[in-house]
């Protein structure tokens, strides 16, 4: 469609404005309301800056200190504990692996119970879902602290923390994939006389398994990152060494640990991304 510039007369614009006012932007009231919201957000931000003492002097002094810390960090040194750090990194990976694995195993039945197309009984589904929300609502680090109190210092507390907090997350992700399955293969198996077990085995599993594995790998990546800090509260892994080096101002060793964490996370992300692409690729062909 061609519009000639000459056709756009004030009369025509006025007619269009009368027939379709929403195209010309909000009404005065809605614009005022959105401006009021923005003003409120800015006032709140200024209030926060004042309340939390973001004074230029304090920031300047802090940045000076930070500069000194960073200068101390280079060159990174092991202080003779390189093997100890490497062992702790492996322990971190082990914690993330076991935590994710068990969380996935617990999440599978819960996910089926929390899916609309499996469990029609809605109060039961509601209970399962709210329970999962609670597990996810409490941060992993809080679970870690609680488990450190309950089972003592060490990686077991960290593994348990990962299991508890991630069962909720994975169950949610899994039940989303279950609810998104294509009904046709399921009905096909049923129409050919498949019993319920066969329906799940040949109707659901081939569709959801790659999605489950992919979500689990994704959570594993995320858990490797979060497992590095569980040690700060004593729940095993490299975080313990890092927190201890920072607290005792051995910056060059802390820096080495940070570099080791960056490299590990990078490698895990790369490998896991490759695996996930393969799994998803298999699912779509």
């Amino acid at each position: 469609m061609r519009i000639d510039i000459a056709d756009i007369t004030p009369d025509r614009v006025a007619a269009l404005r009368a027939s379709a006012p929403q195209v010309f932007g909000g009404t005065v009231a809605s614009r005022l309301a959105s401006q009021a919201v923005w003003a409120g957000l800015i006032v709140l931000a200024v209030y926060c800056l004042v309340r939390f003492d973001f004074s230029p002097v304090r920031l300047w002094n802090g940045l000076g200190q930070l500069g000194a810390i960073i200068r101390h960090m280079f060159p990174p040194q092991s202080g003779g504990a390189f093997m100890e750090f490497a062992g702790a990194i492996l322990q971190t990976l082990g914690m993330a692996f076991l935590g994710t694995l068990f969380a996935a195993l617990f999440a599978i039945p819960l996910a089926f119970l929390g899916s609309k197309n499996i469990l029609r009984f809605s109060p039961g589904r509601f209970l399962v879902r709210r329970g999962m929300d609670f597990l996810r609502g409490v941060d992993q680090l809080i679970w870690a602290l609680i488990f450190v109190r309950a089972v003592g210092l060490g990686p077991l507390a960290g593994i348990l923390a990962i299991i508890v907090s991630d069962t909720g997350t994975l169950a949610k992700l899994f039940s989303e994939s279950i609810e998104n399955v294509d009904r046709k293969p399921v009905e096909g198996v049923r129409a050919n006389g498949g019993d319920p077990v066969q329906t799940i085995r040949y109707g659901f599993i081939p569709q959801v398994l790659p999605m489950f594995l992919s979500s689990t790998l994704y959570m594993f990546e995320s858990n490797v990152r979060s497992a590095t800090i569980l040690g700060i509260v004593g729940a095993g892994g490299i975080g313990y060494h890092l927190a201890e080096r920072i607290r005792s101002h051995r910056w060059e060793e802390a820096c080495l640990i940070l570099i080791m964490i960056l490299v590990t996370v990078g490698v895990i992300d790369f490998v896991s991304k490759r695996l996930r692409q393969r799994l998803i690729g298999k699912a779509t062909h």
Binding site: L90, Q91, L93, G94, L98, L101, G154, P155, L156, G236
Partner: peptide
């Protein structure tokens, strides 16, 4: 799994 259980003291 075996390696993780070993390093994770699990």
């Amino acid at each position: 799994f075996a390696a993780a259980a070993w390093v994770g003291e699990f």
